[in-house]
């Protein structure tokens, strides 16, 4: 259905159209910004060094083996564990000083109270 200045579609057709347009766009990006430059210019350049195809290890020994690699999931879990460990500590020993005396905690309580009050009083 075409409205005045907009095109309204059903959700399934919309998803199909958007996906198709994304693929068209991706194809254009690939052709213009990768293939064209590579074919006309980049492919003609050659610069050979012994370490050209090796990993950047910066200070460690030059290697072409897969080592020093830490699994991505391990780093992610480590980050979360460290973040939550601090929260757990603050909930037990320093709960009052770190959470209850925080300006954000008070602001959140006031805003939540305002929301509940607005719902009760019918200010909507």
């Amino acid at each position: 259905m075409i409205c005045m200045n907009e095109l309204q579609l059903t959700v399934d057709i919309y998803a199909l159209v958007i996906t198709t347009l994304t693929l068209v766009n991706a194809g254009a990006v690939y052709m213009i910004f990768y293939e064209m430059f590579k074919r006309f210019y980049g492919a003609k350049l050659k610069f050979e060094t012994p370490v050209k195809n090796m990993m950047t290890l910066c200070g460690m020994e030059v290697t072409d083996e897969v080592k020093h690699l830490v699994p991505v999931s391990e780093i992610m879990v480590f980050t979360f564990r460290k973040a939550f460990k601090h929260i757990t500590e603050s909930l037990t020993s320093e709960f009052e000083s770190k959470v209850l005396r925080d300006w954000f905690f008070y602001a959140l309580i006031i805003l939540t109270a305002l929301i509940v009050l607005s719902l009760i009083m019918g200010w909507y």
Binding site: E6, L7, Q8, L9, V11, I13, Y14, I18
Partner: peptide, 8 residues
Amino acid sequence: LPIWSPFD
């Protein structure tokens, strides 16, 4: 000509 749908 923007395109839209419910739940877009």
